[in-house]
Write a protein that binds this DNA or RNA. Sequence first.
DNA 1: ACAAAATTAATAGTATTACTATCATATTAT
DNA 2: ATAATATGATAGTAATACTATTAATTTTGT
Lengths: 242, 242
Amino acid sequence: MIVILLILCQIVLLMKYILQDLKVNINNNIYLKDPESSDLGKKIVEFSILLINDIGFDSFTFKKLGAKIGSNESSIYRYFENKHKLLLYLTSWYWGWLEYQLVFTTNSISDAKEKLTKAIEIITRATKEDSAFSHINEVLLNKIVINEYSKSYLTKEVDNENKEGYFSIYKRLINRIKDMIIEVDNTYRYPTSLASTVAEGALHQHFLRDHFSSLTDCDDQITPTTYFIDLVFNSLNHTTNG
Amino acid sequence: MIVILLILCQIVLLMKYILQDLKVNINNNIYLKDPESSDLGKKIVEFSILLINDIGFDSFTFKKLGAKIGSNESSIYRYFENKHKLLLYLTSWYWGWLEYQLVFTTNSISDAKEKLTKAIEIITRATKEDSAFSHINEVLLNKIVINEYSKSYLTKEVDNENKEGYFSIYKRLINRIKDMIIEVDNTYRYPTSLASTVAEGALHQHFLRDHFSSLTDCDDQITPTTYFIDLVFNSLNHTTNG
DNA sequence: ACAAAATTAATAGTATTACTATCATATTAT
DNA sequence: ATAATATGATAGTAATACTATTAATTTTGT
């Protein structure tokens, strides 16, 4: 009976996802006007991903984006205060989307090790397929996160923005992984640091693979997933299983 | 006999260090004119560290630096093409300085595990003391590296700049750690990734401790050093010692 | 000591960025 | 039909990221 209910729940979630009723819930102080609420807003999000991926966040401007979507610079400013806020929006969306996959996929797994393995897989893999339902290209967004995410928090305003809750989705995601680590080994002393190391480290290893191949073992054969699963499980089960 | 020679070597190194004859060798395409070659150059380096630490790299400009040192914007441009190159210079100096400490300290250690432990200690600890001999404040520079280093390579120009050798000191440092890892356990499959994870991850854990305490276990008691030594040695010795 | 060379300072100028403000026009809701 | 709302067009400002030129100062070679 309970099993059937659980399965039904998942089907509902799956349908929501497919029908794009899924909406990543982003702190509404990040935007001035919800970009999901209009065609222009969606276009801003859609094409900013393409443009940032293309020319990089540093040389990305609202003027260039306006030109790209045949719209006015000042119209874009009605949605986002500045490009930094737009980056916060995009990366929050990405982490929310990852969190969704994480929860959805690991939900039904009861074995703690298997669950953690799956979780690591999800946060360390490269996004390979665009969902094709929405205006958001997840493959490119994943690349943007690899190349630009650090810039969203390596600022002088980070403490204020953190207080405002601009990073709460990311923090919740790391927290979920931390909990899964504890479930595997509650004697391990650094579950939070390990969780943040995996998430941040995975982005870094992907970056190194693309630009500094001499600084990583990751290549076509070895993925960041392989490496981090090994790393994590070498640290856990160590004290408990000996 | 050989032992005495080795000791003498170290004494010479130490004296060089104390007398500041030590000069970190930075790729000379990073600067237009060697800042070590003049008073103004040294002032630029000295005060850029103070200013970047103070207002952050993003709002740092050569105009502001000029005002701070009572010199002209255009004079600074004769030393560095732009502030990005200056950041490359400062971070290269930092990694060179760390590499020096690494080589100097681990040089005499013959036990592989002890050597690696010491190495991890050096690259993961927070710089606490300014050497006081030079114009460079290493404590602040360490903070700058924590807050800004990623920005030096998360750019569209990274592949070209890498080819030019702008990151060679950092790469050499990671490579040294990798070699030490292999010396401890030559069956471990990801020595390079582990080395880069420790170096990058340490900066990240320091940052988290300062701004996202819920994402790290590091605090006054637990240092990134403690965490990473545990992490590394859990992965090594695993297959060999069981 | 003095001329030549090199370095630094001062000023000005350009193109771009990162916005803000205003007003006109188009769309939509009632 | 009218009001409300969204978007577009234009203009304008202050700051940034430089380059160029010329003047003043310092260093160096003889």
